[in-house]
C-alpha cells in the first residue's frame, strides 16, 4: 500500500529499523514504478515495444490469412450484449434519420473506385446476404455472442470496382467522439480483410433490425479482430491508398489514441 494508514491507538510501535526498511522498500518500489511510467513516455521505448505487436500481426496474418472465425449455434447467443463506445450518437442529423427509420439514409462508397455509388438500405438488403453467429471480443476483455445478417463487403466492392492503387477501406461513421459534436468515429481495414467471407456490412442483429445501440442502420463485422474495429453507424466507405491523411493518420479513432491497427489480439 502507498501511504501508511493511521495506527490504531494502543498498538505497539514498529521498531525504527523495520520502519526504515519498509520505507526503503516502498521508496525503491515507487522509484521503479515511476521509472517504468517514464519509460512508457520516452522517445525510444514505445517503438521498441511496438515490435511485439508487429510480430504478432505478421505471425497472425502469415499463419492463417483466410481462416474463418468460429461460428456458434442459436442456443449460444448471449442474452446480454453490451453496447460499448457510442450507444446513441449525439448528432442531430443522425437523430433525424432515426426518426424516419433511415428512409433517406444511404451509404456512400467512393474514393479509389471505378464506379462511386450510393446504396440505400433496401438496395443493400436486395444483395445476397450472409448470416453468421459469432463471438464479439472487446479489447477490454469481455465477450458476447450474437447473430449478424448483412451483405458481405466483397459484394459491395465488386459493384464499385476498386482501382489498382486502392489498398485500404476506410469506414466513416455518424457518431461524433468529441463533446462539441466533431471528431467522427472512423476505422479502416485492408482489402484482404475486406473480401474475407465473414466481413459483413450488417443490418440485422439476432434476426431484428440493427438497434441504435449496436450501430443502426449498418455496422461493420470483422470477426477475427477486436470490437473497436467493428465500426457502427456507417455513413460512407472510402477506398484509399493510405490513411495517413485521415484524422490522426493511424487508421482509426482508437488507433489515433494508441491502440493497434491490427486488432487480432
Amino acid at each position: 500500500m502507498i501511504g501508511a494508514p493511521d495506527r490504531p491507538p494502543g498498538s505497539r510501535a514498529p521498531s525504527a529499523r523495520r520502519v526504515l526498511l519498509a520505507r526503503a522498500v516502498s521508496a525503491l518500489g515507487a522509484a521503479m514504478l515511476a521509472g517504468c511510467d517514464r519509460l512508457s513516455r520516452s522517445e525510444w521505448l514505445p517503438p521498441l515495444l511496438a515490435l511485439g505487436e508487429k510480430l504478432s500481426s505478421a505471425a497472425q496474418r502469415g499463419l492463417a490469412p483466410g481462416a474463418l472465425a468460429q461460428e456458434f449455434s442459436v442456443a449460444e447467443i448471449s442474452p446480454l450484449f453490451r453496447s460499448n463506445g457510442t450507444s446513441d450518437p449525439d448528432n442531430p442529423d443522425y437523430q433525424a434519420m432515426v426518426d424516419n427509420r433511415f428512409e433517406n439514409w444511404a451509404l456512400e462508397v467512393d474514393g479509389l473506385v471505378e464506379q462511386p455509388s450510393r446504396f440505400s438500405l433496401s438496395a443493400l438488403r436486395a444483395l445476397p446476404a450472409r448470416t453468421q453467429i459469432t463471438r464479439h471480443d472487446c479489447v477490454e476483455g469481455w465477450s458476447a455472442i450474437a447473430q449478424w445478417t448483412g451483405v458481405p463487403l466483397a459484394q459491395v466492392l465488386a459493384h464499385v470496382r476498386p482501382r489498382a492503387d486502392a489498398r485500404y477501406v476506410v469506414f466513416h461513421c455518424a457518431d461524433p467522439m468529441e463533446p462539441d459534436g466533431t471528431g467522427f468515429y472512423y476505422e479502416s481495414i485492408d482489402l484482404e480483410e475486406a473480401v474475407h467471407p465473414q466481413t459483413l456490412l450488417a443490418y440485422e442483429m439476432n434476426g431484428e433490425r440493427l438497434p441504435v445501440a449496436h450501430g443502426a442502420p449498418l455496422r461493420l463485422r470483422v470477426e477475427r479482430q477486436l470490437g473497436y474495429k467493428h465500426a457502427k453507424y456507417l455513413m460512407r466507405i472510402e477506398l484509399v491508398a493510405s490513411f495517413a491523411h485521415i484524422a490522426g493518420g493511424r487508421g482509426g479513432y482508437w488507433e489515433d489514441l494508441g491502440y493497434q491497427w491490427h486488432a487480432g489480439l
Binding site: 500500500m1 515495444l49 511485439g52 504478432s56 491502440y259
Partner: peptide, 25 residues
C-alpha cells in the same frame, strides 16, 4: 492498485504494448 500495475495510471494500449513485447521475449 497503481503500484501493482504497469503502467500505473489507466493506459490500456500501453499496457498491451508492454505485455505483448515481453510475451514474445
Amino acid at each position: 492498485p497503481e503500484w501493482a500495475t504497469l503502467p500505473g495510471p489507466y493506459w490500456l494500449p500501453m499496457a498491451r504494448e508492454w505485455h505483448f513485447f515481453f510475451a514474445w521475449l
